[in-house]
Amino acid sequence: MRLLRIGSICIAAACSMFAGIPAEAAVIVHGTRQIFPGEQREITVRVENVGSNASLVQAWTDAGDKSAKPEDIVTPFILRPPVFRLDGKKSQNLRILLADTALPQDQESIYYLNVLDIPPTPQDGEISTGNYLQFSLRTRIKLIYRPKGLNDVARAPQKLQWQLVEDGKRWALQATNPTPYYVHFGTLGLRVGGVTHLSPDAPMIAPMSTQRYPLQDLRSSPKGGNVQFQYINDQGGTAAQSVPLSVS
């Protein structure tokens, strides 16, 4: 979220006054993630303005650094159009074209689609005092390139291999992903004796990789337990998985 303009009030006072006011984007992106099939050279993403006023929309992709400036980013994708006006209650198809085909063909690659909603400046008479806040709101979702021939993504979560390991002075779940797919977690934890010890930061695991996820409030190594997690599918839905954990 980026502050575009503040009238005569200072930033600190403005943030204090408006801290409890929710900021909602008028421009929304349909879908929580986008899959780019390797056999295609272009996909479209629907962008909709659910508000009443027109917005200026800027769209770009990034390779994982959400703070990078659009003009400094290089990805294998081109967006058409990258900047456009979107009237209220209207929608626009954003085209994502694959410009560089030199991507790994044996596993998925992940990028991110950014859509920035820049509302219009209030007109004279809309604000009586002249003191106002205006925000531009950014939506950032996953853009996953899936090479041609990879068609077993639904079974990837079941193929994860789990271990309980010491990670410094704490315990962690260690996942090994032998598949060519990213597995995206909603929640992750270890349930022992009726208590679930959650991992506070478990966004995903990359293909062909091993990742550790620290657990909360687990003081000693249990004899068994169940790894419980929710994973997110291509449509943004979630499904639950429970895997017995054997501890030697």
Score class of each variant (00 low, 15 high):
73 I>G: 00
136 S>D: 13
93 N>L: 15
84 F>A: 07
139 T>R: 09
85 R>M: 13
127 I>Y: 05
90 K>T: 13
162 W>E: 13
78 I>D: 06
126 E>H: 05
99 A>R: 14
123 Q>Y: 04
102 A>F: 05
133 L>S: 10
111 Y>Q: 00
109 S>W: 02
83 V>P: 02
102 A>G: 03
130 G>H: 04
159 K>W: 09
77 F>C: 05
163 Q>S: 15
121 T>K: 14
101 T>W: 05
90 K>H: 11
166 E>V: 09
112 Y>C: 01
128 S>V: 08
104 P>E: 10
126 E>Y: 03
120 P>A: 09
75 T>D: 04
79 L>K: 07
170 R>C: 07
115 V>Q: 00
132 Y>N: 09
162 W>G: 11
73 I>P: 00
113 L>F: 03
101 T>Q: 08
75 T>C: 05
108 E>P: 02
134 Q>G: 08
155 R>I: 11
158 Q>N: 14
73 I>Y: 02
156 A>N: 10
137 L>V: 10
132 Y>T: 03
92 Q>V: 08
131 N>E: 15
133 L>P: 04
106 D>P: 04
86 L>W: 05
147 P>D: 02
141 I>P: 01
80 R>D: 12
144 I>P: 03
106 D>R: 11
105 Q>L: 10
156 A>I: 12
123 Q>F: 05
154 A>K: 13
139 T>A: 14
144 I>K: 00
82 P>N: 11
74 V>Y: 06
135 F>P: 00
95 R>V: 14
82 P>V: 07
147 P>E: 01
143 L>F: 04
125 G>V: 01
160 L>E: 12
112 Y>E: 02
100 D>A: 10
134 Q>E: 13
133 L>F: 10
122 P>Q: 05
121 T>R: 15
127 I>Q: 08
78 I>C: 03
80 R>H: 08
165 V>G: 11
141 I>F: 00
157 P>W: 09
127 I>W: 03
147 P>M: 00
131 N>A: 15
89 K>C: 05
79 L>T: 07
109 S>N: 02
135 F>V: 04
106 D>C: 04
142 K>T: 00
102 A>E: 12
86 L>I: 13
110 I>T: 03
163 Q>C: 05
127 I>T: 08
164 L>M: 12
161 Q>D: 14
97 L>R: 14
87 D>E: 15
119 P>F: 04
168 G>H: 10
115 V>H: 01
95 R>P: 01
161 Q>V: 11
77 F>L: 07
153 V>K: 12
134 Q>P: 03
149 G>W: 05
142 K>C: 00
107 Q>V: 02
127 I>R: 06
142 K>S: 10
169 K>W: 03
120 P>T: 06
86 L>R: 06
75 T>F: 06
111 Y>W: 04
124 D>I: 09
96 I>S: 08
161 Q>N: 13
91 S>E: 12
97 L>H: 08
120 P>M: 10
168 G>S: 12
169 K>V: 06
166 E>S: 15
83 V>M: 14
126 E>L: 04
145 Y>R: 01
84 F>S: 07
89 K>S: 13
149 G>C: 06
142 K>G: 08
105 Q>V: 12
142 K>Q: 12
139 T>N: 11
